[in-house]
């Protein structure tokens, strides 16, 4: 079953006529994702690669194609609006790849999404992939293998590192979810861990986090009490100086809070096996599995 996306996903690409949107739409199609529509305002009526109809609005795309997920490649200035448009049209899974959306815009998006059944992943994320079935995002498909490990991460390339290690050791992935590097986003570590906990296809979980915020601690508290599946984790940024934004808008130690050391301690207390280095992520999960 996996979570969020599978072979029944019908994908819309918002921003399909742009350079990044077009490139990744093609990559997703090559992977086997069922891309059914594109949206770029004022470009409605065009055909993308002679295959995919382009619409002016998400609502039109929804009505004409029954798309049930969207991948957003809209510039930061307009991306929050694109998210709300997708939510308004009832798109069930909204994956926003865009980096650089103002924090207050995302604060308003969250407030505006209260009560909505749509699930927002991201922004500033690499996307979601259920190996062998559906890829929504920018991750290299070939490193993933279908399997039983659920991966949830704030990072992009660091996630690929973990996936690469898992695949090399013969442990495939049920679904990999990139929740993104922004301080305010649509889906937290805990949201995904709960989904994995309920997913019959997922037997173990890897959580990848970093400095800033309290996402990992919140997930650890729940995992310690409720999670039925073994969890391993890695937290990046042990060597990050405090007070500086380390690339990701959400990766910052403020007023002594959000340190890697603090997170690692909370995770370990919850029985989560924490990798000592990024080279140790898959091995940490294997150690946790061996513990039983």
């Amino acid at each position: 079953m996996a979570i969020l996306v599978n072979k029944h996903t019908r994908l819309l690409v918002q921003g399909i006529t742009g350079k990044a949107g077009g490139f990744h739409a093609r990559q997703c199609m090559e992977y086997g994702t069922n891309v059914v529509a594109g949206v770029t305002p004022a470009r409605g009526g065009e055909m993308f690669d002679d295959k995919i109809p382009v619409f002016d609005t998400v609502l039109e795309a929804r009505r004409q194609t029954g798309c049930n997920a969207t991948m957003i490649f809209v510039p930061a200035e307009f991306a929050a609006d694109s998210i709300m448009e997708a939510v308004d049209a009832g798109i069930e899974v909204v994956v926003c790849i865009t980096e650089g959306i103002p924090v207050l815009d995302m604060m308003r998006v969250r407030a505006g999404m209260k009560g909505s059944p749509s699930r927002l992943i991201g922004p500033n994320c690499p996307g979601v992939i259920t190996p062998g079935q559906c890829k929504i995002g920018i991750m290299p498909g070939y490193i993933h293998k279908p399997g039983k490990v659920g991966v949830v991460s704030r990072s992009g390339t660091l996630t690929y590192e973990a996936v690469w290690q898992l695949s090399s050791r013969g442990h495939g992935q049920s679904t990999c979810v990139g929740i993104g590097g922004d301080p305010i986003n649509g889906t937290s570590h805990l949201d995904v861990v709960k989904m994995f906990n309920d997913d019959p296809d997922t037997e173990a979980i890897i959580m990848i986090g970093e400095i800033g915020g309290t996402d990992e601690e919140e997930a650890a508290a729940w995992i310690g009490i409720h999670c039925n599946k073994p969890v391993a984790a890695f937290i990046a940024g042990t060597t990050a100086p405090s007070g500086r934004r380390m690339g990701h808008a959400g990766a910052i130690v403020s007023g002594g809070k959000g340190t890697a050391a603090g997170k690692i301690e909370v995770l370990q207390t919850a029985g989560i096996e924490v990798a000592t280095t990024p080279a140790d992520m898959a091995d940490a999960l294997l150690r946790r599995l061996a513990r039983g």
Binding site: S153, R154, S155, G156, T157, L158, T159, E161, G181, I208, E210, I211, F234, A236, G237, T238, T239, A240, M246, G247, H248, A251, A260, T276, T277, P278, A279
Partner: peptide, 26 residues
């Protein structure tokens, strides 16, 4: 490095192996 998470993790693993990172660069 490409990617902020991987860049932070790269600094971390350099330190782990006894080195001292000069920068973060994504």
């Amino acid at each position: 490095v490409n990617g902020a998470g991987l860049a932070m993790a790269t600094m971390d693993i350099i330190k782990h192996h006894g080195g001292d990172p000069a920068n973060f660069l994504d």
